[in-house]
């Protein structure tokens, strides 16, 4: 049985199409990523799966249970971490954890092995009110609270937004360990580097899924050759490249520009040389998942 099945889910908020014909399923023990920019509809999908919101059309199943008909059973079995920090800021780490354990009719001790790795990292601060924790510790606590009743499925809505890079890395290491324990995880993130850590990802934009595949395949399916370019004046370079008729796309990626062309690269060099860019570097680059996402996004924008 697939732990998460979504079939043709639609959701509108007034005139805004939040979700349009979303279908996918998550396999047993899979770490599945929902990748998309803010406002893509990720949180809406999470809230439908967590039985907090009703879909206009379509149906969804968690562990074989229908999200509308069996919502009570689902609420007992899932761990949900909302996008916004939703624990009691005036209660301490320990009190929050005990509270969520007790309302699930269990105790922290009972499932301690599941949260041990995470809890040990925040345990030195267990007497501190949750509101006074750093962003990374808050997320670790939230994950503990979502795990404390040993859920069969885990929903994590942007768990690393607003968290520093080191804590983000630690957080994802924890997710990997949880996956090894066989818990299927649906996680959303706006960060492309995190997408590479998932088993499969769904690229989502404007309420529609553009592609579902493993991160490796998404990168592989990216058919074009990418050129990394840089010069002293990056802003002028970007403008010149976008003005060039042989350029397909040109995006800034850290210190380089990623450029795709439909003409040989020599033509660009011939075009740029008279423009006198200082320290111009042009070299081939490995496409990443972000390149693939940008391309898909552009294609979708063109078809709309």
């Amino acid at each position: 049985m697939q732990p998460i099945v979504i079939e043709n889910v639609h959701k509108r908020f007034g005139d805004v199409k939040a979700l349009h014909d979303i279908s996918f399923s998550v396999e047993q023990g899979e770490l599945f990523g929902l990748i998309g920019p803010d406002g893509a509809g990720k949180s809406t999908l999470f809230r439908i799966l967590a039985t907090l919101l009703l879909a206009d059309q379509g149906s969804a199943f968690v562990n074989g249970l229908h999200v509308v008909k069996d919502y009570k059973a689902i609420r007992r079995q899932v761990g949900y971490m909302p996008g916004r920090f939703s624990l009691y800021q005036d209660l301490t780490i320990e009190e929050n954890l005990n509270f969520f354990a007790t309302i699930f009719k269990t105790s922290v001790e009972e499932n301690y092995d599941l949260i041990k790795d995470i809890y040990e990292q925040i345990a030195p601060f267990k007497g501190r009110p949750a509101g006074k924790l750093s962003g990374g510790m808050k997320q670790k606590l939230a994950l503990c609270c979502a795990l404390v009743h040993k859920p069969a499925v885990l929903f994590l809505d942007e768990p690393t937004t607003g968290v520093d890079p080191v804590s983000r890395k630690e957080f994802w290491e924890m997710l990997q360990r949880l996956r090894q324990k066989g818990i299927p995880i649906l996680v959303s993130t706006p960060y492309m580097d995190e997408a590479m850590l998932c088993d499969r990802v769904a690229l989502i934009q404007k309420g529609e899924i553009m592609q579902i595949n493993t991160p490796g395949n998404i990168v592989k399916s990216y058919g074009k050759k990418i050129w990394a370019m840089r010069a002293d004046n990056m802003f002028r370079l970007i403008r010149d490249l976008r003005a060039f008729e042989g350029t397909d796309s040109c995006f800034a990626f850290g210190e380089y520009l990623h450029v795709t062309l439909h003409v040989p690269v020599e033509k660009v060099q011939a075009y740029l040389t008279p423009l006198q860019h200082g320290n111009l570097v042009i070299k081939p680059a490995q496409p990443g998942i972000e390149d693939a996402f940008m391309q898909l996004m552009q294609e979708q924008n063109e078809t709309v």
Binding site: A50, T51, K72, V78, Y80, R84, S86, F100, I103, F104
Partner: peptide, 13 residues
Amino acid sequence: EIGTIEQLNVTPI
């Protein structure tokens, strides 16, 4: 207001 209801609602309460 502080959003805790979102977490509370996904519990058997």
